[in-house]
């Protein structure tokens, strides 16, 4: 199923308005914003003007993991440590839903405003997260612009998918393969592929043993390895001779993991890239 992004939009705008109202009513627009997570970093860099950003996490400046590293420029970096954060005297700290709970609690006890940005498991979630963050930052126009651009990029995908869908597998270091209830899984589905991980019943994703992978002979291997030149056992698994031999016989794609690791408009580009492979 291609997600009907547009249908849910009405609902979304309503939420956005309410949020704007709530935030606006409560506080002034934050001027010294600190983000401590790669995903909130990228959203912040997209939505807020540089002068309002006090600090982003060190990951944001690493072009291997951050799609917007070039925007970091002179913005100071942090390592999500409470002493660093307090030094910026932030009026808003952006953290991810799953950020260190003890850190968040401590910051709140110290009187800082910490907002948790939720994660995304679908393209609709991405839109919600972008809208939600835009509201938090009191930048609704910038949010709307991003969403519109995303919609435009996704639009051609609305064409009916080829049936039967070709079987694809996302294979990440350690043999991990995300399922339908993950952002990469949603991208794969939006691009018109069937996901091997779903077929094996791994909704949220799981490690697929090499042997099992070979047995299902997927039509497309999507290797999700952001730093292929690093030395780790997790990545060594992706260079197993059996996998290499099998991959040579079928289609392979390397995907830039930055496109779908966070709920940013980049997911639309991921969909577009994969759609071209079909």
């Amino acid at each position: 199923m291609i997600p009907s992004v547009k249908l849910d939009r009405r609902c979304l705008w309503l939420t956005l308005l309410i949020l704007c109202y709530l935030c606006g009513g409560r506080t002034q627009a934050a001027e010294r914003i600190v983000s401590i997570n790669l995903c909130t970093d990228q959203l912040l860099l997209l939505l807020a003007p540089v002068e309002r950003i006090s600090s982003v996490s060190f990951m944001a400046a690493n072009p291997v993991y951050s799609a917007y590293a070039e925007r970091v420029g002179q913005i100071p970096l942090n390592h999500a440590r409470v002493e660093e954060i307090v030094a910026f005297d932030p009026d808003l700290v952006l953290a991810y839903e799953l950020s260190d709970r003890r850190l968040v609690r401590l910051l709140r006890e110290l009187g800082y405003r910490v907002e948790l940005v939720p994660g995304a498991k679908s393209l609709e979630d991405v839109a919600t997260v972008i809208a939600h963050t835009a509201a938090l930052l009191q930048q609704p126009a910038a949010g709307a612009e991003l969403l519109a651009a995303m919609d435009r990029q996704l639009d051609p995908g609305r064409a009916a998918p080829a049936d039967p869908r070709p079987l694809a597998v996302i294979y990440a270091p350690n043999g991990y393969s995300p399922g339908a209830e993950t952002l990469p899984g949603a991208v794969l589905e939006a691009a018109g592929f069937a996901n091997l991980s779903d077929r094996l019943g791994n909704q949220y994703g799981a490690v697929i043993p090499l042997e099992q992978l070979l047995r299902h002979q997927p039509d497309l291997y999507i290797i999700d390895d952001q730093e292929p030149n690093m030395n780790s056992l997790a990545q060594k698994k992706l260079r197993h001779p059996a996998l290499e031999k099998n991959i040579a016989a079928s289609a392979t794609a390397r995907i830039d993991g930055r496109l779908w690791s966070c709920p940013t408009p980049m997911v639309a580009q991921a969909v577009a890239e994969l759609r071209d492979l079909r």
């Binding site: 090499l210 042997e211 070979l214 047995r215 002979q217 197993h240 001779p241 059996a242 031999k245 099998n246």
Partner: peptide
């Protein structure tokens, strides 16, 4: 596939 699994894995 069986040969591949046996010999390579």
């Amino acid at each position: 596939v069986d040969a591949l699994v046996l010999l390579e894995i």
